[in-house]
């Protein structure tokens, strides 16, 4: 019964998002096209530097492209499925209409995080597959089935982490609405996920592995595809992702408990 209700809400929200996308279809299509263009543009620097060096921080051009592929996919998910809802919630917190959401007989976190989608952004999915095909054609091999399975499982962990980070950002917004431009900050930092994590040294390496685990999101799945991701690291990454999710849920419940809407 509970599950059924939530599935129905998800379906209704997807329908609404699609209707909205159709209303401003040129804007959204342009948006999608721009993001594809960006993906292509982002490969240029990679191409340029590998022209000069066969191997950078232990990665060849083809291997680094795999990281780029996962980044493109997650970036599409972030901007197509996670970000739009976040923008909606922050607007609702600002105007006090979040009260309506909290009065609905369904899990508030679920309602909040499925509120809006940008369907055109899913074009990124196609782009990332194209990058994978191109990368493997350069490498002259293909991934093993085991590698694909491990990479997808790794991707799921990456999505869990990405989503948890966003829930944390919303929880901050409950306390200080003006923090909403934190999301731009995170988007800027997220860009670092384009490169294999071995590029980063010292403090940045620590931050991108443990604090904002970008390595887990893009580099590990790429290594899984290549068959070089050890299972211990895989397990540790999943454990970390679950901890992240639990913390995010805890913080969310606390913030919602102490939430009193903006214009009481």
């Amino acid at each position: 019964m509970r599950l059924e209700r939530h599935l129905a809400v998800l379906r209704a929200n997807l329908r609404l998002s699609f209707l909205l996308a159709m209303q401003y279809r040129w804007e959204f299509l342009l948006d999608g096209a721009m993001s594809l263009l960006w993906t292509a543009a982002a490969i240029v620097p990679l191409y340029l530097v590998f022209e000069e060096r066969p191997r950078i921080a232990g990665w060849t051009y083809g291997e680094a492209l795999l990281v780029m592929g996962w980044f493109t996919l997650l970036d599409g998910l972030l901007k197509g499925a996670i970000n739009p809802s976040l923008v909606t919630v922050i607007e609702q917190i600002r105007t006090g209409t979040l009260d309506f959401v909290l009065l609905k007989p369904a899990d508030a976190q679920f309602l909040v995080s499925t509120a809006r989608f940008k369907p055109w952004r899913l074009l990124a999915l196609g782009a990332s597959i194209a990058i994978f095909v191109y990368a493997f054609s350069l490498l002259g091999t293909g991934p093993t089935w085991g590698g694909v399975a491990q990479a997808l499982a790794m991707l799921a962990a990456g999505i869990v982490v990405l989503y948890s980070v966003w829930i944390l950002v919303i929880s901050v917004a409950f306390r200080a609405v003006r923090i909403d431009n934190l999301r731009y900050l995170f988007e800027a930092v997220f860009e670092a996920g384009r490169w294999p994590s071995t590029v980063f040294k010292g403090v940045l390496s620590f931050v991108f592995t443990f604090v904002i685990p970008l390595a887990l999101m893009t580099t590990y799945p790429a290594e899984a595809l290549l068959g070089t991701l050890p299972w211990e690291r895989f397990a540790a990454a999943w454990a970390g992702a679950l901890v992240f999710a639990a913390v995010a849920r805890g913080v969310w419940l606390r913030s919602i408990g102490s939430y009193t809407s903006a214009s009481s």
Partner: peptide, 26 residues
């Protein structure tokens, strides 16, 4: 709860679509 100062209707869509959403929620 209805609040005269706040609205739950989705601004860019017809009210009927918000009704549909509430149908799913309830």
């Amino acid at each position: 709860l209805v609040m005269g100062q706040k609205q739950q209707l989705i601004w860019d869509l017809p009210p009927a679509d918000t009704f549909e959403l509430n149908r799913a929620v309830y």
